[in-house]
Design a protein around this nucleic acid. Structure first.
Lengths: 229, 229
DNA sequence: TGAGTCAGTTAACGTTTTTTAACAGCGGTT
DNA sequence: AACCGCTGTTAAAAAACGTTAACTGACTCA
């Protein structure tokens, strides 16, 4: 249940625009592409964006003007400029409007990604959700505080129990690959960690056995699967 | 009570260091100058800074290593690199560590200022980071003056208690890495410092136990995590 | 200058968590 | 059926952590 960062990208060069959109989408962002500043401004006002990337030179409305307009109604949303010029004056004009960063074309995709990451990291909200919970059959499970609400007891899970159960729950009714799980939880899928995992599966089965409809089933040679009937 | 943004500047070139310090001070910043990365790391851990400027090439501990150490205990504080090289690889190495920006020497003072302003603009109004105080559940905590406002007492924290709690609070709901914390607070992550840290965790748990919703939970083999329900 | 105080470390002992060992059973293959 | 790798389970061993108290060294102040 992870919300993706939505980005508003204003770029009149169709090729570059689509290239960037595809790249950023592959990196897990929601990217809305606008052909020019006017369209971008409309889109900004009709939807919610966490991040803006504006080409400086565009028809209709250039990037700087667009940024200035947006800054009047939102003085916080991060704005990154793409500019073909490399003159210092331009850079400064962008910053004084309230840009957060700029890239001079041509630039490496990875650098763009790095800068977006750097900026969004700072603006992230401090507290992540601690109140998230799942229902496994009739049993309430709170992974963030590692609690399992059983019929007549609230069981505290250990780190490993919790990591494993969280993966099972996230992949409910799907096979949880044995090797992948070992690498995720134990860091290495060697023999002993495998045995250790089997021990933890036994613990979890015992913890969940009060609800008959829950089953952690083994898929021979593949992994485990949490099934709730 | 207006407090100035405090900057930690790590620069081994004494001339450039003083020049920058003087310039930034004239622009209204509090600037602490550290001769090398090791000194900077110690200063970062004993005081509070809103911004970091690190020269990449320094004796004792270089800027990238310094940033990496700091990122383990503070994933938000803005870091700007000063680099003499202009290779793209270097830039990316910086960003992947979690840098926010970089400047290639020689650079214009005004450009440095513009970048600092761009990065701090959004955070300065939102964050009450300048007038440092946190709420841990119902308990008010003022790290700068090392006070914990309990129900019927104002508890003075010792240096170590305070450093540890500050890190926990800054990383609320996230795992605070055991080794990184030891290096930050005790300078070395050997066995005995580890035991010492466990003693301090016990002290903090005792101090915070009046609020049931607060928990310092252990993540076996990884570190501790401050959770407020 | 020497008893008292205080922050921090080390020691000691207890508890919890995780790993390893040991043995038993199961599943698929030949 | 015989075999072999995979899994189930329990118990013992090892590692990590929790807590209290004794200890150490630095500082204070009469």
């Amino acid at each position: 249940m992870e919300k993706r960062t939505s980005i508003l990208l204003a770029e009149d060069d169709v090729n570059l625009g689509h290239l960037l959109q595809t790249f950023l989408k592959s990196k897990g962002f929601d990217v809305t592409l606008a052909q020019n500043g006017k369209i971008a401004f409309d889109k900004f006002n009709s939807d919610t964006y966490q991040f803006c990337i504006f080409d400086v030179m565009m028809p209709e409305m250039d990037g700087f003007t667009l940024a200035k307009e947006i800054r009047e109604i939102d003085r916080k949303v991060p704005i990154l400029f793409l500019t073909a010029k490399s003159m210092k004056e331009d850079k400064l004009e962008g910053f004084s409007i309230g840009a957060d960063d700029y890239l001079t074309k041509p630039f490496a995709m990875e650098e763009l990604l790095a800068r977006i990451t750097a900026i969004t990291r700072r603006t992230e909200t401090t507290d992540s959700e601690v109140d998230q919970h799942y229902l496994i059959g009739t049993i309430k499970y709170e992974p963030d505080i590692r609690l399992l609400h059983l019929k007549d007891e609230v069981k505290k899970l250990t780190t490993k129990e919790n990591q494993l159960l969280k993966l099972l729950v996230k992949n409910k009714n799907e096979i949880l690959d044995r090797q992948a799980t070992l690498r995720a939880v134990w860091g290495d899928d060697n023999y002993f960690n495998g045995r250790s995992m089997d021990v933890y599966i036994a613990k979890l089965r015992k913890a969940l056995k009060e609800d008959e409809s829950i089953e952690i089933m083994n898929v021979h040679g593949k992994g485990f699967k949490l099934v709730v009937k």
